[in-house]
């Protein structure tokens, strides 16, 4: 299943400047794996050994995946994923 993923400005160097990309997978973890195939380097920016990095929030719709099962969070048709830095830079 294809899902739209919204990419924040600091990560767009890895997506050729695109602010939205499409990735496929049944869970958030599978989406991240597919993003890594299509845009190498993205996975390490989002995850560390323990899961989603502390300063990164991944939302499915309005919900932070930390509270919906983390990387196991299942996706349904029409879901949109948004990656948001937990803080604002400079």
């Amino acid at each position: 299943m294809d899902t739209i993923v919204r990419i924040p400005a600091p990560l767009r160097s890895l997506t050729g400047g695109a602010d939205e990309v499409v990735a496929s997978g049944a869970t958030v973890g599978e989406i991240v794996a597919d993003l890594e195939v299509k845009h190498p380097g993205l996975r390490d920016r989002l995850l560390d050994a323990k899961g989603v990095r502390r300063f990164i929030n991944i939302y499915v719709g309005e919900e932070d995946v930390r509270f919906t099962g983390g990387l196991e969070t299942a996706l349904k048709a029409g879901d949109q994923i948004t990656i948001v830095p937990a803080i604002a830079g400079g």
Binding site: P8, P10, L11, S13, R45, R53, R54, F55, I56, P85, A86, I87, A88, G89, G90
Partner: peptide, 18 residues
């Protein structure tokens, strides 16, 4: 400076990507 464009050090800029 932060080591990466995507960081959690509020107020700091990663110059190469800003």
């Amino acid at each position: 400076e932060p080591d990466s464009p995507m960081h959690g050090l509020e107020g700091l800029k990663h110059m190469a990507s800003s």
